[in-house]
Amino acid sequence: MVISLRLTGDPAEIPGALDALESWLGAAGLSAEDLGEWRLLAEEVLTNIVHHGSPPRCDEAIRIDGLRSGDGVELRVADRGRPFDPCAAAPPDLSAPPEERCGGGLGVHLMRSLADEMAYAYRDGRNILTLRKSSPSASCSQGQAQPEVATDDPL
């Protein structure tokens, strides 16, 4: 199963793209927990691009390609914004008390923590971020329904 989405770089498009992605992943059989975590991963990636990468508005400022295979999902996000490698970003200071924190760097930290793999490349004027995460089908993790067999029938 694959999905391909194109965004113009307008922040207002993000919720719709996240809804589309979540519907696709839901149809691919992911659990509610995995759906939420993928939505969060995608929101952090897209918010970062739109607010910090400032890609020029065009038909394909951001392109999202999703691939569902086996027990995992891979999401590739390409954008024309400023080069930014989230894999190399400094981690936020988590030791400071909450009331002294400003929230900077949390999105990237969440991405790194929730994804099983995260890879970055800059090619042909595009940031290309690939996220992978093991996401078994909800029906498998809950145990498959067994056909009813009347084994307790004494006859």
Partner: peptide, 26 residues
């Protein structure tokens, strides 16, 4: 609340900071 992203966390940080400034708790 089923979901929170970094922008949501930021709002909670601000609220905690404001409460701290007034010697209160969150």
């Amino acid at each position: 609340l089923a979901y929170i992203s970094s922008m949501g966390l930021r709002s909670l940080f601000v609220a905690q900071k404001k409460m701290q400034e007034r010697q209160g708790r969150t």
